[in-house]
Write a protein that binds this DNA or RNA. Structure first.
Length: 211
DNA sequence: TCCCCGATTAACT
DNA sequence: GTTAATCGGGGAG
């Protein structure tokens, strides 16, 4: 990242992810997701929206216990759990907590910083605000799919998370999670207040990619 | 085996 | 605000 010198390029450690999912979700805001494509290109996006999921949580894939699909989610922290949804989209999660515990953080939106042309090509949309503003969009823009399920974000090469710049408390907003039907869902969706790259909210474009 | 529906997105009226 | 697209996970039978 050539831009702001305040953005730390230090890599997050295993212990960063070995904490409760809600803590990690909040702390991931402002961090940098780095994707090294097989052709040598590098894509970077700043995380601006996350959601926490844990084992005793009916909305979590891990709620019904370990299955073939959720195996990674029950494994050690710092690995990527990718799942396929609605027959056409992928969503990526960072595994959290202790090994054997089924908790993770869904990465819902990010602000594109580097590799925009490649993201535009993959998304077939030009507006920067439509590149990574949603879990499915983020995966498509960053080239995340089944092959990336189970990859190591701490010691791996194709995906890393850098320290970037943490978000101060005043700029963090917590809301109920998106798509969780429970009437009183816990405020486990975290976003950067006022950021225009979140998946929903004031000013966020929805619908037509031609916008 | 069958069947329902989802941690979504884009294109409608 | 509403809905089609599209498919696999996992509970029910």
């Amino acid at each position: 990242v050539r831009r702001s010198p305040r953005l730390s390029r230090a890599k997050l450690t295993r212990s960063f992810f070995a904490r409760p999912s809600a803590v990690v979700a909040r702390d991931l805001l402002g961090r940098l997701l780095v994707r090294e494509l097989s052709d040598g290109q590098r894509l970077i996006a700043r995380i601006v929206e996350t959601e926490a999921y844990q084992e005793d949580d009916p909305a979590s894939h891990s709620f019904r216990g370990l299955t073939e699909r959720t195996r990674v989610m029950f494994g050690p922290p710092g690995y990527l759990y990718v799942y396929f949804i609605y027959g056409m989209h992928f969503c990526m999660n960072v595994v959290t907590g202790r090994d054997g515990e089924g908790s993770a953080v869904l990465l819902r939106a990010a602000e594109p910083l580097e590799g925009l042309p490649e993201m535009i090509k993959r998304r077939r949309v030009e507006s920067p605000r439509l590149l990574c503003s949603g879990p499915g969009r983020l995966c498509q823009a960053m080239g995340i799919g089944r092959p990336q399920n189970g990859t190591d974000l701490v010691g791996g090469a194709e995906l890393r998370v850098l320290a970037g710049e943490p978000i101060t408390a005043e700029l963090v907003r917590a809301t109920p999670r998106v798509g969780v039907i429970a009437a009183h869902d816990k405020p486990w969706r975290f976003l950067v207040r006022g950021n225009r790259h979140v998946s929903r909210g004031p000013g966020q474009l929805t619908g037509s990619p031609r916008a």
